[in-house]
Design a protein around this nucleic acid. Structure first.
Length: 876
RNA sequence: GGACGGUUAGCUCAGUUGGUUAGAGCUACUGGUCUACACCCAGUGGGUCGUAGGUUCGAGUCCUACACCGUCUACCA
């Protein structure tokens, strides 16, 4: 075995092996299944910390399921990512002096394909490096022909049932990407702006005005009314009158009453621009007002906006304000911070714009709510259910058309001559020459919401595929960040409910659990982002710390659903732990490199008939650890589970058990093997490479570690039937471990930490005298003292510590003095403990109310402390 | 405006249904390297659990109010 642990070597080796032998492909052999759908990253994306975290978690789940004998199907894939990919390519084109409009649709799409070929799939290699165990034979891409067929089918079905419709609505328009966006793609940002107050002259009462407040003066030319609150006494007389448009002397607009107007805000009067504001749109519909658009698709003022035609929206804002000022209509402009919607991709303010778009009215909303309420779908952490239900309760129709070219083109054709005829189908009309296809594509999420269905070929009704589908659907857990709870997760639930209508409810949900990770932040608590440059490249981290080190480090700081403050220090800890594990296994092999087992039974056979107390203590602790670990993983407590493993391994096994073994004349390698074997198994989901390597090096089976199995009941039965585990023996070793700390501390406090020639005295408690004699020689070696002499009287002036077993003292040759200050401190502390305990016990209500075990505990504690105090007081 | 999450040691975080003296890792400090490991070992220090009240025999844990940080949500232009 190599002296030092070099992650890059073993990672490369096993990665190659796993891929070549296709170790992670689902068998569909009738065993219980375990399915996970990987959230598909963008096809041209590269691995970031968020991927690293949630894929490691998925891998832990999948590997653990495999160890438990499940037939695991973890489906990877990529998403064509409409806007993201298209805008990347357009940026490149711009540098070349080209544009998609100049190239034409077909040439442009070819160009995107080429880009995808060049940059696509990188993330798969990166995921492999990370060590994920997904089934690459099932890798899916949202533009695969089969997958696309599903997308079109979904569209057509929903259209036929009336869930999809085309409508002229106010949508979120991105003037840069020049496409509509869904509400979820709009980020609200607090923005510094101005609130302008200006006055509209009243036609019927010359010389009087109605003051209104707005942040968007550039839309004035699109105003079609002014609105006040119906019960506002200030404006009662004005309702029904008219106001004069400032930039069009021929146009007057009515003053209407509507309850949406907030009386307290601004002047209590609102200008109504239905074509450019969502509230105004609603008012416009209620009052049957005309819609006047004044901005075009680029956000530039159009002919309706004369005299500002041709100006960009922000330029126009300034010009309008100036013009109003000149006319003497501007009353006030004051700085004002408010929330403005920004396009997620282009990072510019979106423009509410009236346009014809395709919408989905969601089916199965009530069913989706019920699923969660009845806990057929379980959220981890549970609190997310509230957010989920809130969204479903306030659900809005989904704008699914995008004015892009990259994606699934909307399967709708319009007749060239008969404008009223519309054709909606997957294949298109039989006489295509007479039809024109809708130029738009579908929102990327309209394809990814079918992920669980599409990756399992839901449309393939062949017997073979149906068997496959039924075996692996629904999946066990969906792991994702909470940022796409609405974008993706909720919609997948709805789509599965809708399109699997012929199945019973429990078999229509795409996953039974939803685990939402936290967000990976930097050391300063900021979200990691490209623009800040604070996101480390996971591959660099893997290079520095090993994939296993990264995985352990990351998961150990990722408590359930809590945001993570990332710091490389934690990865150091992960890597160090791997080194420690490596060395412990190397130490095992140094003792005897010839042992090898075909399976667990072989190993159990190698255990001797009799074990010493330390062996028994270790094995009992192991059983306890296994049960605890199992429980934690089942509760998705990945951080606690790995920390428990690390701590037990280091402290119990390395620091205590192995050190004791070293001083024992005879010791049992099979016990070490059993412990190491189980530790490797439990660690495998977190650190697959190093455990695979050590498993092979130590010959713990003929196969891979993932085939090891996990039969805790059998193991427990075997051990408990073969060995007599006495609780008092276990307890003895526990107290011995405490005693070790106390005695080492005593030495260290007196500057003798490394002096092996120290002699000690002990005045034993009669209750522990026998125990002491049994362990005396071990104790001497482990503490590092020449000898411990039993005495009946401890000299008053020697440094001492009072323990459960008795009072121990150091024999000092020189003139070192007893530290009476420390002694006094101990006495003060003990006295305070005793006092609180006595107070409790003196309180009859405590005795009456508290459970017996608690009362007993306090009594015992009190007794022990009193004993210690007495012993200490003798020396003062 | 509403909802949710966070506030515990210098730092990052655990703390299960209220129950004995609040834990871990890292850092700091002291000492060590005796045939697994300096990516190591032994030890020490460090907390009035955000603030103020309340319930209880007993509160980090439950209740109320407030403060600060964060996230989501929302038609105050």
């Amino acid at each position: 075995m190599e002296k030092s642990y070099r992650p890059e070597d073993i990672e490369k080796k096993w990665n190659k092996y796993w891929q070549e032998k296709r170790c992670f492909e689902a068998k569909n052999d009738g065993k219980p299944t375990f399915t996970v759908f990987m959230p598909p990253p963008n096809v041209t994306g590269i691995l970031h910390m968020g991927h690293t975290l949630n894929n490691t978690i998925q891998d832990v789940l999948c590997r653990w399921a495999r160890i438990n004998g499940k037939d695991v199907l973890w489906i990877p894939g990529t998403d064509h990512a409409g806007i993201a990919t298209q805008s990347k390519v357009e940026k490149v084109l711009k540098k070349e002096g080209l544009s998609r409009q100049k190239m034409g649709r077909e040439a442009f799409l070819e160009r995107v394909q080429a880009w995808r070929k060049e940059h696509g799939g990188i993330i798969f290699d990166q995921l492999k490096t990370l060590g994920v165990s997904c089934d690459w034979s099932h890798a899916t891409y949202t533009l695969d022909p089969n997958y696309s067929r599903g997308v079109f089918t979904a569209f057509v079905r929903l259209y036929e049932q009336g869930y999809i419709y085309k409508g002229k609505r106010l949508v979120n328009w991105c003037p840069v990407s020049q496409t509509a966006l869904s509400d979820e793609e709009v980020i609200m940002k607090p923005t510094q702006a101005f609130l302008y107050t200006f006055k509209y002259p009243i036609v019927e009462k010359p010389g009087t005005f109605l003051n209104i407040a707005t942040t968007r003066p550039e839309t004035i030319m699109g105003d079609v009314a002014l609105a006040v609150h119906p019960e506002d006494p200030r404006y009662q007389a004005l309702i029904g009158l008219h106001a004069q448009c400032p930039f069009d002397p021929k146009r007057t607009i009515p003053i209407i009453a509507d309850a949406v107007v907030e009386r307290e805000f601004g002047t209590g009067a609102l200008k109504i621009t239905p074509a450019h504001d969502p509230i105004d749109f609603a008012v416009g519909q209620r009052h049957h007002l005309p819609f006047i658009e004044v901005l075009d698709i680029r956000g530039v003022v159009n002919e309706n906006g004369a005299p500002f035609e041709g100006m960009d929206r922000f330029e126009a804002r300034k010009a309008v304000v100036e013009a109003l000022r000149e006319k003497g209509l501007l009353i006030e402009e004051k700085p004002y911070e408010h929330a403005v919607g920004y396009s997620e991709r282009a990072d510019v303010p979106i423009e509410p714009r009236l346009s014809e778009q395709w919408f989905v009215r969601y089916p199965k909303v009530e069913e989706a709510k019920r699923l969660a309420e009845k806990e057929l779908i379980h959220f981890w952490p549970q609190r997310w259910i509230k957010t989920y239900l809130h969204w479903l309760n306030n659900i809005q129709d989904w704008c699914i058309s995008r004015q892009l070219w990259w994606g699934h083109r909307i399967p709708v054709w319009y007749h060239k001559t008969d404008k009223n005829r519309v054709h909606v189908s997957i294949e298109g009309p039989n006489d295509p020459e007479n039809w024109e296809q809708d130029p738009d594509v579908l929102d990327t999420w309209f394809s990814s919401w079918l992920w669980p269905l599409g990756t399992l070929n839901w449309l393939d009704k062949s017997e073979e595929n149906q068997r496959h589908f039924n075996a692996f659907f629904p999946s066990h857990t969906l792991v994702s960040g909470p940022d796409i709870l609405f974008f993706w997760i909720t919609r997948m639930i709805i789509s599965s409910l809708e399109f699997l209508e012929d199945r019973p409810m429990e078999q229509r949900l795409p996953f039974k659990n939803i685990y939402l990770t936290g967000i990976v932040r930097d050391a300063l608590g900021r979200k990691m982002s490209k623009s800040l440059g604070n996101s480390p490249d996971p591959l660099d981290l893997i290079k520095n710390f090993g994939a296993d080190g990264v995985r352990i480090g990351l998961l150990s700081i990722a408590p359930q659903g809590q945001d993570i403050r990332f710091d490389e220090r934690f990865l150091t800890q992960g890597r160090n732990f791997c080194t420690k594990l490596w060395n412990a296994c190397r130490f095992r092999q140094m003792q005897d490199a010839t042992t090898s087992y075909h399976n667990l039974n072989d190993l159990l056979k190698a255990l001797p008939q009799e074990l010493n107390v330390y062996d028994k203590h270790l094995l009992l602790s192991l059983l306890k650890l296994m049960k605890e670990y199992e429980k934690l993983i089942a509760k998705y407590e990945f951080s606690s589970a790995i920390k428990l493993l690390q701590h037990t391994f280091k402290s119990l096994f390395c620091d205590d058990y192995l050190e004791i073994q070293k001083i024992q004349s005879s010791h049992c390698l099979a016990v070490q093997d059993l412990f190491l074997r189980q530790i490797l198994i439990m660690l495998e989901p977190y650190a697959p490479y190093i455990t695979e390597e050590l498993w092979a090096q130590l010959h713990y089976s003929d196969g891979l570690i993932q085939e090891a199995g996990w039969d805790i009941a059998t193991l427990e039965k075997f051990l408990t039937s073969r060995y007599d585990f006495k609780p008092e023996e276990f307890q003895a070793v526990e107290t011995l471990r405490t005693l070790l700390e106390e005695l080492r501390g005593l030495k260290a406090e007196n500057g003798l930490a490394s002096d092996k020639n120290v002699e000690m005295l002990v005045h034993l408690n009669p209750t522990h005298a026998k125990l002491f004699q049994q362990h005396q020689s071990d104790l001497e070696k482990l503490v590092g003292v020449k000898e411990i002499h039993c005495v009946t009287e401890i000299p008053a002036d020697s440094p001492k510590v009072v323990t459960l077993w008795g009072t121990f003292a150091i024999v000092l040759e020189g003139k070192k003095q007893l530290d009476t200050e420390a002694l006094k401190q101990d006495i003060v502390t003990l006295e305070s403990y005793i006092k609180t305990a006595e107070q409790k016990l003196a309180n009859p209500r405590f005795i009456d109310h508290a459970p017996a075990s608690v009362v007993e505990g306090v009594k015992k504690q009190l007794q022990e402390n009193q004993q210690k105090l007495e012993a200490l007081k003798k020396y003062l």
